[in-house]
Design a binder for these strands. Structure first.
Lengths: 196, 196
DNA sequence: AAACCTAATTGATTTAAGTCAATCATATTG
DNA sequence: CAATATGATTGACTTAAATCAATTAGGTTT
């Protein structure tokens, strides 16, 4: 079953009873997105949060000048969505695009509220989840401020050891907030260092 | 009572029963830190999270080169602490320093776990709290990547309308990840624009 | 294999922001 | 008031990264 990966993920963070898990899985819906297609587009109402079972996606937003800003990558075992839109009921500002053919599990907002009522352990699961996302995001902030392109790329590779190779470098450069050329040069310098 | 501000804050996000609130407030301890003193220092075990009742503090960490990196400011109505250390039991990497004489309410880790058990509404309160902190942090990331000093300063002033004036500009510059000189020049340009 | 596309790399140049050093402004203290 | 900190500003110079413009490298498709 596609649910197994997610159940394993839940069990790593909290300790649900079997009936809690059954309730949870009963609310999940499988979603497939093919490469290049969108899961979420801006100015839409967002009713779901998604767990990646297979594939790779990116979330980005276009600013006033039309520049793309990648906010997040997601691969297997990651949750993904537009928190702001989902929890605050505002229109989404994000594009979420599949970089590979992807399979996700979706949970609906109302179902999630019911789940929180009936199985509060999931309130805990999501609290723990968001807390650790917050901690990583804080690390990313510290990395983006005052660190060189090279250092940031190294840290990126440490944080996302599985993404390298699946995502083109120019997208990684965008995520890091640097130009593709600068990233290329930084990588070159790193290669030079390693060989000596 | 010093608890009033925090209770109001809780009630804005969730709807606790009176007995939940009583349990909560029974676990709070008042802490006073005078200007220049530290609430948390690196390499210590962190047992508490703090809510600011009065005053102003900053959280920062020193990198290998000894550079200070301000991670967060906190004034009245903000929670503050070292999530990573608090939730994951690792030694703190942060300094948390009072920029003004400050009064805080502290909650202990074990007490918080008991609270979550006995009054799950607080599990929700903290989930909602962290979720919105996550959303703001994501906005800060987008701001730090690809935006000019001027734009970032403007966004800072919008996000923290009450901090301007209470915190010296060189600390704001640090938080924004720019030099004090650059911030000064950006502010100068903004003044010039306003006058015309 | 030729033609095509996409991504990565490299070189030349520009630019925004950093650094260093000095000066100015303003509080605070003796 | 003079003396002293502390923070803000300004100027001169340097530097890291962006931008612009080719070129190269790998994969696909025909």
């Amino acid at each position: 079953m596609t649910h197994e990966l997610l159940i394993a993920h839940v069990k790593k963070l909290v300790d649900p009873r079997p009936e809690d898990l059954n309730l949870f899985t009963s609310k999940l819906r499988e979603v497939v997105v093919t490469k290049g297609k969108f899961l979420i587009q801006p100015d839409t109402h967002v009713n779901h949060e998604y767990f990646v079972v297979k594939g790779c996606l990116s979330a980005y937003y276009l600013d006033k000048k039309g520049n793309k800003n990648i906010v997040q990558f997601a691969i297997e075992n990651w949750w993904l969505g537009d928190f702001d839109a989902f929890y605050n009921g505002v229109p989404s500002k994000l594009h979420i695009e599949a970089l590979e053919d992807s399979t996700l599990l979706a949970i609906n907002y109302d179902d999630l509220q019911i789940l929180f009522q009936q199985a509060p352990i999931f309130e805990r699961y999501f609290r723990v989840l968001v807390t650790s996302a917050f901690i990583s995001l804080r690390k990313r902030i510290l990395s983006s401020l005052g660190k060189s392109v090279k250092e940031r790329y190294v840290e990126f590779c440490e944080s996302y050891p599985n993404i390298e190779g699946r995502v083109p470098n120019y997208q990684i450069a965008n995520y890091l907030g640097v130009s593709a050329e600068s990233l290329s040069r930084a990588r070159r310098k790193m290669r030079a260092l390693k060989k000596t």
